[in-house]
């Protein structure tokens, strides 16, 4: 994902803004990181450049 995705995305649960924590960048793509809800504190992973914004219970519904 690119950083400008932050303009449009929000927490899928409470629709509040997210903060981005970058773990690894590749040019202007964020490859690994975390999106953290500024309201409820829920964390959403960015893996292999793709943000996973499923509600946590859906994300963990089965081992990847």
């Amino acid at each position: 994902m690119r950083e400008d995705l932050m303009d449009i995305i929000c927490c899928p649960l409470d629709k509040h803004e997210l903060d981005l924590e970058v773990i690894r960048r590749d040019d202007d793509e964020i490859m690994e990181g975390r999106l953290v809800c500024t309201e409820c504190g829920e964390e959403y992973p960015v893996e292999d450049g793709i943000p996973n914004l499923l509600p946590p219970d859906m994300r963990e519904e089965s081992p990847a």
Partner: peptide, 26 residues
Amino acid sequence: ASNARSYTDDSQVTYLVSDFEHLPFA
């Protein structure tokens, strides 16, 4: 989402994992 991402280099195209009933958009 991962397959979809691998088919393009267009920086304006973003794929994300999420659910119809919990859209992560403003």
